[in-house]
Each structure stands twice: as structure tokens, then as C-alpha cells.
Simulated scan of single mutants.
Amino acid sequence: MQEKLERRSFIFTLALVSIAFALMLQPFFIAIFWACAVALIFYPLYVYLCNRFPKWPNLCALLTLILCIVVVVIPVLLVASSFISEVANLYQNVQSGKVNLGAKVEEVRAAFPGINAALERVGMNFDGLKESLLGGLMSIGSLIAKNALALGQNTLNFFVSLGLMLYLTFFLIRDGSSLVDLLIRALPLGDEREKLLLAKFAEVTRATIKGNLVVAVTQGTLGGIIFWVLGLPAPLLWGVVMTVLSLLPAVGAAIIWFPAALYLYATGDMIKATVLMLYGVLVISLVDNILRPILVGRDTKLPDYMVLFSTVGGLMLFGISGFAIGPLLAALFMAFWQIFMREFLGDTGTLSPPQTAQLPNTKANTGSPDREG
């Protein structure tokens, strides 16, 4: 009886200490997540270097981290800084009247007179729609401008978080394998389940960041280049916006380049409009179909509706990092439920349509995991 009471008391205290520790780390959750993600992506390079120089693991980890900084961190900081500058300038021009959004919308209505009739058929008014659209754009611009100002005021906090992320990334790269083994021994979920869930975490994180992000950056870069070639305003700004939108299935970069092409048609610039339309359809839109299967793989892809909702929800809940955290949580949610269905209900089916992600077959291991709590 005494031993049972001591055991329960210890577990209760362990839970309290763990919760307190998690709350203490809560301000750094995003930095910790990105450290794990970057370590996962660059770990194969570390393994390659260790095979070449097995006596210097610290040096191999440091070289891997330096490459990560050069390839990822520095370019992202440069683009983010230019993007914030362009957003602030555009918002100021709109507020000062140098850019008249209302006049541009009126140009579109004059070029496509059938818009009024089409909207009236569905019970909408063009003037009301224009006011709502302009109000929404001004609200978004104001929000971005305020966030840009806040980012400038919190530069020290940002670089502290970045430094902590890179510091943790070094140790995760160097000691990642031993840390995973420790995590498997510590968690009371059963070794086979833990290996499956950790494998799913690694798979989805790599697919989302390495695959989807590369596709999005490629589409955004191509979009920004064509905007620059055609002489359209703020090509860097719209290129970054297209990059973000390309993370969303079913919508993507076409939300930007298609209305831009229609506007060029409306203003009578037929050549530029046709070039942009053809380029968008034949180049930007095809990138997803060509690169995503190569970089992500059809067997690791979540259903498009799940990606859409989890990405949007992740962006709303976690900010820009949500494009990776959202799909990861969705994949873990599906993995947990599929393990539950297989091991506790005896259901060998899948939560996903046949063409989407299939979890590895754990049927052989479901009878008696290494530990059951």
C-alpha cells in the first residue's frame, strides 16, 4: 500500500514538474519547433560529413549549421526585410493618395461592363463589393504595417529567439539519434507506437518544409520574376505573397497573377496581360504538378482538404510557422487515430482516401508493444 501511494505521488509530482517546465519553455516553442525541423532536414548532411570525418562530430555539426545559416537563414532575413519595407511603402502610398485603389477598381468595371449585371443576378452590388474589398485591403495593409513596426521594435527578441534556435539546432544535429532513443525509452506509449509516431513526425516535417516550401518559393520566385519583367509594381512584394499563397492547395499563386492579368486586360495592355496569363498557366501552375511529387511524394501527402484546413488553421493559430505546424498536427492526429483503430478496434482500414497518405503496416507489431504504459 505504501509503495503504491509513493508511486502515485511520484507520478503526480512528475506531471506537475513537466507541466511547469513546459510552461517555462512556452515562449520558445516556435524556436524549438524550427530547431527540430531544421535538424531533421540537415541531419543527412551531418551523417555524410561524419562518415568522412568520424573523429570530429562537433566540427561536422558546426559545418552543417553554418551551411544551414548560409542557405536558409540569411536569404530569409534579406527577403523578409525587403518585403516589410515594400509593404510599408505601399501602405503609405495608398494612405497619401499616390496609389488610388478605387480608381483602379473602376477601370476594371469600365473594361468589363458585364460585371454589374452578373453581380446583380446573384444579389450583389458592385459599389458595395468595392467598398468591402478596399476596406479589407486597407485593414490588411494596416495590420501588416503595424506588425512590421512591432517587428522593428522587437528586433532584439527576434534575434534572441533566432540565436536560441540555432544553438539548439547544433545539439539536435549532433545528438539527434541519442535523443530520439532517450525519448523512446522515456515515453510510456509503447516502443513500436513511438517509433511510428516519430517517423510520421519526421516524414511530414520534411515533406512540408523541404517539399511544400520549395514548391512555394519556386512559384513565388517565378511570379515575382514575371512581375518584374513586365514592369508591374512591387514585384518582390507580390512574389512573397504568391509564395505564401502557394502553400495553400486549390488556391495558390493564381489568387495574385490571375487578377493582375485581368487588370492588364482592363487597362488595355493586351500584350502584357496575355504574357502573364500564359506564363501563369504554363509555368507557375505547372510547378506544383512537377515538383511536388518529386520532393514530397504521393505516399506522404495528406488529403488536399486536410492540408487546406490545417494550413489555414495553423497560420491563424501559430502565425507564419503554422504552415508547417498545422499539417504536422493534422498528420499526428490521423496517425494517433489510425493506431487506435488498428490496435483497440481491430480495424485495418484507413482514415484517408486510397490515393493519400498510408501509414506503415504495424499489424505485425500491434499485439504486444514493448511497453503498455
Rank of each mutant, 00 (worst) to 15 (best):
M242I: 14
G314S: 11
S81Y: 04
L247R: 05
S9G: 13
I32M: 06
G367N: 00
C50R: 15
L183T: 15
R298W: 12
V241Q: 02
G220T: 06
P259V: 11
Y43F: 15
L67P: 05
V217S: 08
D181Q: 13
V275T: 09
T274L: 15
Y279A: 10
L182F: 11
V160I: 14
V296D: 08
G123H: 13
L351R: 10
Y91E: 08
V99Q: 12
N147Q: 08
R193D: 03
V72G: 04
P327T: 03
V108T: 15
G319K: 15
V251P: 04
P75M: 08
L5S: 08
T208C: 15
V287K: 03
P327A: 05
V283W: 06
V312R: 00
S178R: 12
K272D: 07
I320D: 12
V281P: 09
M1C: 06
L197P: 01
E6R: 09
P249G: 04
I69C: 11
L40A: 09
T362G: 10
L315W: 01
N147T: 08
V71F: 11
R109I: 04
R52A: 02
W34D: 04
L264D: 03
K301T: 05
P233K: 09
L67H: 05
P233G: 07
S321V: 10
L137W: 07
P327C: 06
P354S: 08
G322H: 03
I325G: 05
T13K: 10
S142D: 01
A202G: 02
R8L: 13
N89W: 00
F171H: 04
P354N: 07
M1I: 14
S178Q: 09
L59F: 06
V94H: 04
R342L: 15
L196M: 01
I140G: 00
P249C: 03
E120N: 14
I140S: 06
L182P: 00
M316C: 14
P57L: 05
A330I: 00
Q338F: 02
V79G: 06
N93V: 09
R298C: 07
L196G: 01
E86A: 11
N361M: 06
V204A: 09
L149K: 14
I325D: 02
D299L: 13
G123N: 09
N365G: 05
M138K: 10
L232W: 00
S368I: 13
S161N: 14
S96F: 02
G319I: 15
T348D: 06
T350I: 14
L351N: 14
Q338K: 05
F12L: 07
L67C: 15
N289C: 04
G128D: 00
N147L: 15
A186K: 03
A331E: 02
L276S: 05
V122C: 00
L237T: 08
F12N: 08
S285W: 03
M124K: 02
A80V: 00
V312L: 08
G349W: 10
P113N: 01
T350R: 15
F340N: 00
L222S: 02
I30V: 12
F336L: 15
K98H: 11
I209C: 11
L291F: 12
R342K: 12
A266H: 00
S177N: 13
Q26D: 00
G136P: 00
G314P: 12
I226C: 07
K104W: 09
A216G: 09
A331W: 03
L308G: 11
S246M: 11
A39F: 03
R121G: 06
